[in-house]
Simulated scan of single mutants.
Amino acid sequence: MSSTAELKELASTVRAVLAKHGDRDVLRRAIDGEAGYDPALWTLLCEQVGVAALAVPEEFGGIGAGLVEALTVVEELGRTLHAPPMFGSAVLGVQALLLSGATEACERLLPEVAEGGRTLAVCWADATGWDTPGVHVEDGKLTGTAHYVLDGDTADTLIVVTADGCYEIDAAAPELTRTTAPVMDPTRRLTTITFTAAPANRLGGDPQAITRLREIAWATLAAEQVGAADACLQMTVEYSKSRVQFGRPIGSFQALKHRMADMYVLVESSRSAAYAVIADLARGSADPLDIAAARIHCSRTFATIVGETVQMHGGIAITWEHDAHLFFKRAHADAQLFGQPPRPLARPA
């Protein structure tokens, strides 16, 4: 695990690249249904920062840094709402491969993933969510439909989660069809992939590995939500300094100061919760209750923060030209992505 100083340097580097090369027009075009990501930005992040290689072990051609470093990048991407294949491929896809224990597949696929030349997508959910895989195995072939697939429209290789373990299949296989439909969050494309008796390479894996994959997904979402919530807070603070009402900046009004202070407390408490479970996951000692608690708290925080952002920006926040509505949609979509913990959290007395 990197030191705090090294993680801050990584975050600063990614933030600088996004600020200089992140095309905001990509997000603006998302409103018109042309969502996706800027391939040039992804190439730059991979070549100059090595983001795709962070969670890939050295023996498979990666940097071997780990989850903490990879999710530091995800947090920075959350600040801008850019959605290159970091979450779906460089985090979930890589972790699904590693958890499957398929050494041959890791040796064959991960070096290209680390270089940014190959992207992965994890096919998992059925129409109702992530509790039951949408794809099953019949006579050794994949049949069924996987819903809400991150980066599924651009992936080169699909990692399919089934009740019998994980499978690998080429995304260009003729036995599958990919459909990308409009969703709540236009800045993140989710794909539906249907398999019709598709031959695939079995990787392995067991129910415990799949449980860990969901925990990683929740921790990754928490990191993204912290970054996005912090961006909304900073956006609101800056606006309160420039927006004048009754001859004074609105940020000087005590009522708004209190609301922004409450926003700050929410962001920092969510950051603490997310960082704690990410560090525990990286060490292999994460408590499922802690992960579920972080999942819930970060989701609620992001929704609350973005709601305050819209209110304190006033009318401008509900226009297409402002980014507030994009953060609002990301917050409510993230709250559903990969499902919620199945029951209220409580520890035995």
Score class of each variant (00 low, 15 high):
3 S>F: 11
5 A>V: 13
7 L>V: 09
11 A>Y: 04
16 A>Y: 09
18 L>T: 05
19 A>Q: 12
20 K>E: 15
21 H>P: 08
22 G>M: 07
22 G>I: 03
24 R>D: 15
40 A>Y: 09
40 A>D: 15
41 L>G: 11
41 L>W: 12
44 L>I: 03
46 C>Q: 06
47 E>T: 13
52 A>W: 06
55 A>P: 09
59 E>R: 15
59 E>I: 03
71 L>I: 04
72 T>G: 08
77 L>P: 08
80 T>P: 09
81 L>S: 04
90 A>F: 12
91 V>F: 10
99 L>S: 05
106 C>G: 08
106 C>Q: 08
108 R>V: 07
113 V>R: 01
120 L>T: 05
123 C>D: 11
124 W>R: 02
126 D>Y: 03
127 A>W: 12
130 W>G: 02
134 G>A: 11
138 E>A: 10
139 D>C: 05
144 G>F: 03
153 D>P: 00
157 T>L: 06
162 T>L: 01
163 A>I: 00
165 G>P: 00
166 C>A: 13
167 Y>N: 01
174 P>E: 13
179 T>D: 15
179 T>H: 14
197 A>H: 15
202 R>P: 15
208 Q>P: 04
219 A>I: 06
220 T>I: 02
224 E>D: 09
224 E>C: 11
230 D>P: 00
241 K>V: 02
242 S>Y: 03
242 S>V: 05
263 M>D: 14
270 S>Y: 07
275 Y>P: 01
276 A>E: 14
278 I>W: 08
282 A>C: 13
282 A>V: 08
290 D>Y: 02
291 I>P: 06
292 A>W: 06
293 A>Y: 09
296 I>P: 06
303 A>K: 08
306 V>R: 00
306 V>W: 02
312 M>F: 12
312 M>W: 07
323 D>S: 11
323 D>F: 13
324 A>W: 01
330 R>M: 10
331 A>Q: 02
332 H>N: 14
333 A>G: 07
336 Q>H: 15
344 P>M: 03
345 L>Q: 05
